[in-house]
Amino acid sequence: MQSPTIDPAKTELNYHHKAEAAHHEEHPDFRMFGLVMFLIAEGMIFLGMFGAYLAYRSTLPSWPPEGTPELELLLPGVNTIILISSSFVMHNADTAIKKNDVTGMRTWMAITAAMGIIFLSGQIYEYSHLEFGLKTNLFASAFYVLTGFHGLHVTVGVLAILAVLWRSRRANHYSQEHHFGVEAAELYWHFVDVVWIVLFGLLYLL
């Protein structure tokens, strides 16, 4: 009944104009959105493990199990502060590149990477001075596996930053408009940071 009323040949025009215009634009960039999805998945791995940790914590007669050697708070505390502040440093890099300030971005990124490496070194130092090993008891296992898994993520984050630094040597690789690498590394870094805050609260404070 409607076919005579409307000429289908005309109906398509509306979009084909748009389409023509769109053809000349860049392929829109969904990588950031994809990264957010990926981080949701990553977050769920951590959440699952945190859930397991809380389950042990609330069902075992005493937690940490009797005889667990004490955990030093000073070093991890300092480490935590370093990691948290590195997030702010990282944010400066992002601000810089949005002002097209590549040198500034590089500087801030380099500082962040350095802080990440200090954090990792602190972790390794802590590991080597702990009085319990992976198999000592459930708390010890959970401690190593959780911090280790997080440490792995910090390492990846540092590598990502270094990759951005490496690429930014080329002029115009990153600019006001094109800086996915910087943003991605930043988002990932914030994620690693947030995970650490929860982890620190669970393992050291709770």
Binding site: S62, P69, E70, L73, L206
Partner: peptide, 11 residues
């Protein structure tokens, strides 16, 4: 928990 070291957490 911060005050007390973990080792002292009473069973």
């Amino acid at each position: 928990a911060i005050a007390a070291t973990l080792n002292d957490t009473p069973p």
